[in-house]
Each structure stands twice: as structure tokens, then as C-alpha cells.
């Protein structure tokens, strides 16, 4: 529940009366942790068990939790940014690792890979993200390693990128063909999926555990929806049902499996997602148009930064990135 901290300052009794009484400890959170500490103290003083989320949403937003994808060969780690529902990946063979869709908290990735006794040799983004600022260019610059990303045909990115195209194959740690590139435009014109070891599909925002990525973030929902339909029916449909999809986002903790990973077997996703079972392009496009929404205001700013067209500062980015992601296509 949301009660502004100044309600507790102006009329503490009324504000306290709105807080439900229960045995469970209440976590109090605000943007940076100052007001929430004040309110948590007040709650405790009036007998309500409470604790402060130190550092607020700002700190929670930068918390990254690595979880190993069980039995994955090559070794894949899913890095869960719980405060936003963003997922990035570290793939490791021997002493080489590549990072996919890193957040801007690049030191976490550097330290994590170091603890695996490996070093980062490649950094990739599956697409130009709208919901978070990519740590790709910064990592590439710091480590002097190549950064692979594509904005789409004819779109030049401002930073130095090594382009990838459909069918490209990358080796890692002596494992040739560790990763294969699939061009899967739709969510964005340059969206890619990366197939690891023939079995794991890092799907970015093209596929999620319960559905697909929205094609309405570029203001051209009809055109992008058509492209997405082609991608789903011509590329995704042709992949083996036993491929494990590892997406770029999740929206609810229920999407985290008992193994601690957010993933879905492609065959299961095809069976449950109506968008993947539409055989008519018209039906698909109409559905996407009908469920199109306005993206959050900060998205266009973030996209500009990720295209290398703008620079920004920590304080500004933190504010842009506050809150959950809204990358999936809505369903009514």
C-alpha cells in the first residue's frame, strides 16, 4: 500500500490507523531509504513490526542475483535484477565469458565473472532496450572487448558496435559455435535471439515465459506487428520444441521456477500463448493494435542513450529506471 511519508508527519495517528495490523513484519520502502527509515521507526514505536528497506528503490534496483541455469552446457548464469524484473546472462566456457544484456552496474558483472576464474571477452545486447540503460558500451570500453548490438536495418548507433547478422556464429573458450545469432525483429527492428549450445535461446524481449514482447514501443505498432508475426511464424516456429527459452524480463515472481530460474520450454510456450498460435497475420496485427499502450515516459530517453545518441548522469538514469519493466505485450 502507498502512504506518502508526509501523511505520517502531518497527521501521524490517521496515517498509522491505515496501516494493517498483522504479525508479519512490514517492509517500508521509498525512493532512497530516508523517509522509509523515518516511517519504519514510527511504525515500530507504535507497536507495528516494521523494517526499513535500506537504500530504497534506488538500491533495490541495482541488486543483481546470479543463478546458475541447471545442467546448462555451456555454463549459463541468469542474472536477476529483482527490483525491475530484468534478466541478463553470463555464458562461460573455460576461462572465457560473454555477457548478454548487462545492466549499467557493470562492476557486478566484472566481479562475478572474476569469481568464476574467467574473464569477459564479449558483450552483447539482444536489442536496444527501452526500460534500462545498457552497461554494454561501458563494459566494452573498460575491458577493451567488443560490444555487439544492432538497432535495425539502416539505423546507425552512436557508440562503437560490432554488428551481428542472422546466422552468425560465435565461439567461446575453444567451443566453436557456442552461440548462433537469429535475427528476430518485431519487438524492435534490430531484435536478436542468441541460441546457446543449440539448446538455450536467450530471447531478449521477443519471447517471455508467458507471452511475447510488445511491438508498440516505436510508435509504429502495425508495421512492427507484421514483422513480429513473420518472426514468430518463420523463425521461432521452426526451432525445436525442446529449446529452453531464457527471456530478458519477467513480470511476477510466479514466473520464477522451482529451480530459481525464469525459463520456459519453447513447446510449452507455443501451447499456452495465444499469440504464438494465431495463423492469420491480420488477427495477430489486430490483437497487437488493440492491446497497444503508451510506453512509460522515460522509455524514449533511455532508448536515445542506448542508441549512443545521448549521455546522462547517474541521478537521472536512476530516476528513469525506477519501477517495474513494461516490456511484454498486454493481454485483455
Amino acid at each position: 500500500m502507498n502512504i506518502p511519508y508526509f501523511d505520517f508527519i502531518e497527521d501521524p495517528e490517521a496515517a498509522l490507523a491505515r496501516v494493517p495490523r498483522s504479525q508479519t513484519e512490514i517492509s517500508v520502502v521509498c525512493a532512497k531509504g530516508g523517509s522509509s527509515e523515518f516511517v519504519a521507526d514510527l511504525l515500530r514505536e507504535s507497536g507495528i513490526p516494521a523494517r526499513n528497506v535500506a537504500g530504497g528503490m534506488q538500491a533495490y534496483g541495482s541488486f543483481l542475483e546470479p543463478v546458475r541455469v541447471p545442467n546448462s552446457h555451456p555454463e549459463i548464469w541468469q542474472i536477476n535484477r529483482r527490483g525491475k524484473g530484468c534478466l541478463s546472462y553470463v555464458v562461460r566456457v573455460g576461462d572465457e565469458a560473454m555477457v548478454v544484456d548487462p545492466s549499467r552496474h557493470i562492476q557486478t558483472y566484472v566481479d562475478f565473472v572474476k569469481n568464476l576464474d574467467a574473464h569477459i571477452t564479449r558483450i552483447l545486447d539482444t536489442h536496444v532496450h527501452a526500460d534500462h540503460v545498457s552497461g554494454g558500451p561501458a563494459l566494452a570500453s573498460q575491458l577493451n572487448a567488443p560490444y555487439f548490438a544492432t538497432a535495425g536495418p539502416g539505423i546507425t548507433m552512436g557508440q562503437r558496435v560490432t554488428p551481428l547478422k542472422d546466422g552468425d556464429s560465435l565461439s567461446l573458450g575453444g567451443h566453436v559455435d557456442a552461440m548462433r545469432v537469429l535475427a528476430t525483429p518485431g519487438h524492435t527492428p534490430g531484435s536478436m535471439c542468441y541460441l546457446i549450445g543449440g539448446k538455450y535461446l536467450l530471447s531478449g524481449d521477443t519471447l517471455f515465459v508467458n507471452g511475447i514482447g510488445r511491438p508498440d514501443l516505436g510508435g509504429e505498432v502495425e508495421a512492427w506487428a507484421r514483422t513480429l508475426f513473420t518472426t514468430l511464424t518463420h523463425r521461432i516456429a521452426k526451432l525445436s520444441n525442446d529449446v529452453t527459452v531464457l527471456p530478458g524480463h519477467y513480470s511476477a515472481t510466479s514466473e520464477i521456477g522451482p529451480d530459481g530460474i525464469v525459463s520456459v520450454r519453447l513447446g510449452d510456450l507455443k501451447a499456452k500463448a495465444p499469440e504464438l498460435r494465431m495463423s492469420s497475420e491480420q488477427e495477430f496485427v489486430s490483437t497487437m493494435v488493440a492491446t497497444a499502450q503508451h510506453p512509460p515516459a522515460a522509455y524514449s530517453d533511455i532508448i536515445r542513450v542506448n542508441l549512443g545518441l545521448a549521455k546522462t548522469e547517474e541521478e537521472q538514469v536512476t530516476e528513469w529506471e525506477l519501477g517495474k519493466n513494461e516490456c511484454a505485450a498486454a493481454r485483455h
Partner: peptide
């Protein structure tokens, strides 16, 4: 001063 202090002191 960081929040909540500005409003605490203003009040």
C-alpha cells in the same frame, strides 16, 4: 538535508 528532513523541519 535529504527527505524526510525538509518537510519534518518545515512543519
Amino acid at each position: 538535508a535529504k527527505c524526510p528532513m525538509p518537510i519534518v523541519k518545515a512543519k
